[in-house]
Amino acid sequence: MTGTTTLASVHAAPRVRRARRRTPWIDRIAYGTVLVLLLLAVVGPLIAPHDPYSVDLGQALRAPSGEHLLGTDGLGRDVLSRALAGTRASILGALMAVAGAALIGILVASIATIGGRWVDDIVMRFCDITLSLPVMVMALGVAVALGPSLRSAVIAMVVAWWPGFARIARAEMRTVITSPYVEAARVLGAGRWRLMTRHVLPNSLDGVYVQATLEIGGATLIMAGLSFVGAGAQPPSAEWGAMVETGSRYLTSAWWISVVPGLLITLTALAFALTGDSLRTRNHPDAALS
């Protein structure tokens, strides 16, 4: 009975309760938006009112109307239909990039963790070097090496992003592997493989999940950016970044062509960022956004 920091305990109590309190409305909107976006990524192209690729120059640059709810682009294609169809490329592309990067990151972190000090040093140094290259520049390099396409953009982002995940996973694995219960399992004679799969991996991936959620938003932004500068999805494919680029010529006369996909990119990035932030706040109430 020696602890004395009454003040701290007084504040700790309400803080915990606050975190358990019902989810703030803004977080719930974010969760909802994420669900809707994921749903659209699956069914988007199916519910498009028009063919997103059918060119009709007679219908070009029509303002939003009953016929074309969000207007048409320079080739007379329905912007709403293209935006819906683009959900799949933009969001699934970002999801695949993040999932791929996270998987490789976890794998490399596992190798570094069980591989001993030398392996750990070399692997982590390599991660640091790769991280020092900006994702956008690195991805442009990869994209040009493989030839510009949506697939290259996804590969480029995996190549540029896995070290970030490897760092996070490895930091958590370090903490877990030096914890008393893993020590206990080791004493009981558990082998490396068993330690990794049964004890370390299941207990060290929370941070990776949260980071992944946060990064999906960023991945959407970079994917779109790559398409915008011509290193990602190529015309005529319906992808938000490419759509913004197509519309840039008409920004003063037909704003909807660029504004609609731009807003969708913002919405997606925002929804995933808020969701990730909300998840992180739940895990560590005090580490919110830090």
Partner: peptide
């Protein structure tokens, strides 16, 4: 401030550049 920060981070740079160029510049 927190929400504003998240919002700033969600804006696509190229799109923001286009919009700013058109509205503020043009």
């Amino acid at each position: 401030v927190r929400l504003a920060a998240i919002f700033c981070g969600a804006l696509p740079t190229f799109w923001l550049a286009m919009i700013a160029q058109t509205l503020i510049g043009r």
